[in-house]
Design a protein around this nucleic acid. Structure first.
Lengths: 341, 341
DNA sequence: GTGAAAGCGCTAACAA
DNA sequence: TTGTTAGCGCTTTCAC
């Protein structure tokens, strides 16, 4: 499968040159006689030698690794993000570390501290730390944020708000006059922005729109909101994200509330499972993979040049995907639904 | 957020001792006077110092990092595996690298070669390399495999075969007399083993059982098998994994074949989405998270002790989860189904 | 209990 | 074009 660990000295003595020549032949062949380069290369492959990143780090200060920090790997949204990030990292010859902070600010802090020692920079997906902390960190260590804008920190956003406005258009077109937004957790930077987009669109359509408060971005979080929604007067709900929306679907089904007959549901992210769910989820589709690619690209540019990337804030387009969880508003408003307790 | 890179010398001169003392105070405090240890610790936190893994690697040869190699991060089965692995890694103070080989044997080989330089060992989920390659690699570099047994390589299996036998019992109990197995890809070590378990159980029940050949373990792979299945005579299908099964559900629905009325479908893994699908998927549930934990634990034991772990082959129990994609066999055998083309 | 010194694998001045 | 040398941050003998 592969030979053992050879050092630069092994190659040097095999070829009969000094270690320095080996180093140069491999890293900067233009400085070395073509014939020598050839012999060194041969011997290196022969012995299975390649320079150790750790030893190299001593000089260059570069580990050629980046860290991807995720709040919750359980959310399939991050699957595509991870893959996109890995593509870019591999393309640039970087190794990728992965860290799941489990929605904990403290874990995020700890892992970031550790990352500074082991990698040259980090992509932070939906970071939880304060703007101030992140801006400060960004001065000391190259970071790029995904789905959160912070002054002084390059970022990539999946541009969901316009698509959410389109979702409101869609619902209004179906005759809904009263919609609700199931908010994400307090720490989710994007949640109030999604709410804004929804509210503005609702105002434009002159329809009612209420905010149902903060809920965990989990299946359970969505499911637990079902009774409140069933008891409420809205005929359509837009959830902060798909995982929540899917949980809500489950919760409503358990309560015997028909979707979309009695209530329409819209999600956000178009995760694995959204299309397969019953009813299939109307949602906002944007490429998390592309976001991962762009973020990693920006990060590597930042690492390589030592300055902020030229395009500091990028975004990835998103659009509404209409499936079967949305339908015409029920004729008579709340019928057969539970009363608030 | 955090101070800059301090070296051991900074701490040494801050405290007024030699770098050697700092090193000892932090790594082997029992060799140093308690008072000194205290002062060193204080200064270290003060300066935000912690020893660099890279520099330490020069001596110890250890990077305190492990690599998790996955064939396809797109499969949600791996979400839980990643999380379990990360828990154990973090607990033991290891950093986790992540690599997605995209089902390519060559990428697996390349990444593994790279991993040897950057990490102390690797967990390989469903590796594609040959037994010989893996056994040889295992001599040179600590690896642990998940869901594949190879002589000389410690492994962790999610023990799905008994649960698949239970699935056959379940189907037989529902009156199915003719079932089929939708195979995974050729490279999937587990596929023939699952088939074996199913076949034996079918024989025990004296029911027919056919193998539908190899199919990609993707939504698309499952969906494309739908026509063949709709045209066949089996009244129940067990798929190699859930992703395939969910694709199959989608394909059958597109063909207008009712599940479970006309055909029952069983998956394997109980991934995110299996429960939410329509109909909700009867499947085999085992803890991928636990498998990730055990594998990482075994790997770290192997790294730390330098020998194979005591329990070389471990397994995680799995059980049948009955949902609504399975139901009584249709009365009159294939009715209303398409003919083979 | 602590310090001095050597060396891990590699790169980058500087010489030759 | 190539070799010599020093040194990156840390650990570990070996003295003291």
């Amino acid at each position: 499968m592969a030979p053992t660990r050879a050092t630069i000295h092994d190659v040097a003595s095999a070829v009969g040159v000094s270690p320095a020549t080996v180093s140069r032949a491999l890293a900067r062949p233009e400085l070395v006689a073509a014939a020598t380069v050839e012999r060194v290369r041969l011997a290196a492959t022969e012995l299975g030698y390649s320079p150790s990143p750790q030893a190299r780090w001593l000089h260059t200060g570069m580990s050629e690794a980046i860290t991807l920090v995720l709040p919750d790997i359980t959310n399939p949204f991050f699957l595509d993000l991870i893959r996109g990030a890995q593509h870019e990292a591999a393309r640039a010859g970087y190794t990728q570390m992965l860290v799941d902070t489990e929605e904990s600010t403290e874990q995020e802090r700890t892992h970031l501290l550790a990352a500074r020692k082991t990698s040259d920079g980090a992509v932070l997906a939906g970071p939880r730390l304060s703007d101030a902390d992140l801006a400060e960190l960004s001065q000391l260590y190259p970071i790029v944020s995904v789905n959160r804008r912070i002054r002084g920190v390059p970022s990539v956003l999946v541009d969901t708000p316009p698509a959410l406005a389109a979702a409101v258009d869609h619902l209004a077109g179906l005759g809904h006059r009263r919609i609700a937004y199931l908010g994400g957790p307090e720490s989710a930077w994007f949640s109030p922005r999604r709410w804004q987009a929804i509210k503005s669109a609702a105002i434009r359509h002159k329809i009612d729109c209420e905010h149902l408060g903060a809920h965990p971005p989990t299946l359970d979080g969505g499911q637990r909101a079902a009774p409140q929604i069933a008891a409420g007067r809205a005929t359509a709900v837009i959830a902060y994200n798909d995982v929540q929306a899917l949980g809500l679907l489950r919760g409503l089904s358990a309560l015997g509330v028909g979707v979309p007959d009695q209530i329409s549901v819209v999600g956000c992210d178009d995760v694995f499972g959204a299309e397969l769910a019953y009813p299939s989820l109307t949602t906002v589709t944007g490429s998390a993979e592309r976001a991962g690619e762009l973020a990693t690209q920006a990060l590597i540019e930042r690492i390589a040049t030592g300055r902020l990337p030229r395009r500091q804030n990028r975004s990835v387009p998103a659009e509404l995907t209409i499936r079967t969880s949305t339908g015409p508003a029920p004729r008579s408003v709340p019928h057969g639904r539970r009363q608030p307790r």
